[in-house]
């Protein structure tokens, strides 16, 4: 071992204050970092290529295309703000926005409330926790698939499972997915159904709350409601915040379910025309790439805006203890 150290000694000679420890001085500014630079850029080479051609590059390119008129055939023409001006008068875009907003702001709070409620029940040392957790988590893995969307289309169809069950009670249900007033709610139900993923995160968070807080509160005579609002909720706010940001971002990008349930149209009467579905129709149905790019940037602004507002607001309600 000492022979090895001596072999290395010349390399480190430029920093005489360093005792010859078998640790490399990281970022010491003496020849060594340069070699690491090269090695690091080598390891990052695929990622750099991905950044240029798949993520950041296309992100900037789509900003450029949003100021052009381009249908894939022929050249793109610079049209300035025309695509953005068209958005102001596009009534389908407006319904896409309102459908998506309703979906996000109804389904995400419901989903998180259910996730938290079940996590709290499961956190009380229930026997068979792992089994329950798996069962509740399963829909999260399947929820985004075409097969589940197909199932939903049948279950909420005019003669689907729900209406068969309602018929037992003598109720004649409507065709949920084919009625403009109800179609969106079936997709909200689908999103709430996938509450398992945030539930698992809540469970992990609940584990972190020291038991002694509850014991101390119980000694002081605090009831269950009191303990929930004054211990569980404040201690869990970072996790609630995390889940909220994540699920809002996810919900804004919902596509598959709406596409399959409406057969790609966003119908009936645009009641399930999600933002991404309309973007797909403009970009890959009508090949109006300029307009689709402008829509993409509006989506980025909306998601970025909501995330930023969330982060700013978090200062007032998220409690980071030590």
């Amino acid at each position: 071992m000492s022979a090895l150290l001596q072999q290395r000694a010349p390399q480190k000679a430029s920093s005489p204050t360093d005792p010859p420890k078998p640790r490399t001085s990281r970022g010491g500014g003496n020849g060594r970092p340069r070699r690491e630079n090269l090695a690091a850029y080598g390891f990052l080479a695929p990622w750099f290529l991905g950044l240029v051609f798949i993520t950041a590059g296309p992100l900037l390119a789509s900003l450029y295309f949003s100021f052009t008129d381009y249908n894939l055939i022929g050249d793109h023409q610079w049209v300035g703000l025309e695509n953005y001006e068209r958005m102001l008068d596009d009534s389908r875009l407006h319904s896409a926005l309102s459908v998506t907003f309703v979906y996000v702001f109804v389904s995400v709070p419901l989903q998180l409330a259910l996730a938290l409620a079940l996590a709290m029940v499961l956190d009380r040392g229930v026997r068979g926790l792992a089994l329950y957790r798996s069962v509740y988590y399963l829909p999260s893995l399947l929820g985004g698939s075409v097969a589940i969307a197909i199932l939903w289309r049948q279950v909420f169809g005019a003669e689907g499972l729900i209406n068969q069950l309602l018929a037992f009670f003598g109720v004649q249900g409507p065709g949920w997915v084919s009625h403009p007033d109800y179609a969106l709610s079936t997709l909200i139900v689908l999103n709430v159904w996938t509450f398992g993923a945030p539930m698992v995160i809540f469970l992990a968070g609940l584990r972190q709350i020291p038991r002694m807080y509850y014991e101390a509160a119980a000694v002081d005579g605090a009831g269950p409601m009191h303990r929930f609002w004054h211990i569980t909720v404040p201690m869990l706010t970072p996790i609630i915040f995390f889940n909220l940001v994540l699920q809002i971002i996810n919900a804004f990008q919902t596509f598959t379910q709406a596409f399959i349930v409406s057969g790609g149209t966003g119908g009936p009467s645009d009641s399930t025309l999600f933002y991404t579905l309309y973007l797909y129709q403009r970009g890959f149905g009508a090949f109006d790439m300029g307009y689709a790019s402008a829509m993409a940037w509006l989506l980025l602004m909306i998601i970025g805006g909501f995330t930023a507002v969330n982060f700013l607001a978090s200062k007032y309600w998220v409690f980071y203890g030590d």
Binding site: T55, S62, A296, L300
Partner: peptide, 9 residues
């Protein structure tokens, strides 16, 4: 980054 934002380019 949503894939929908970069899908066109």
């Amino acid at each position: 980054l949503p894939i929908h934002v970069v899908i066109v380019p």
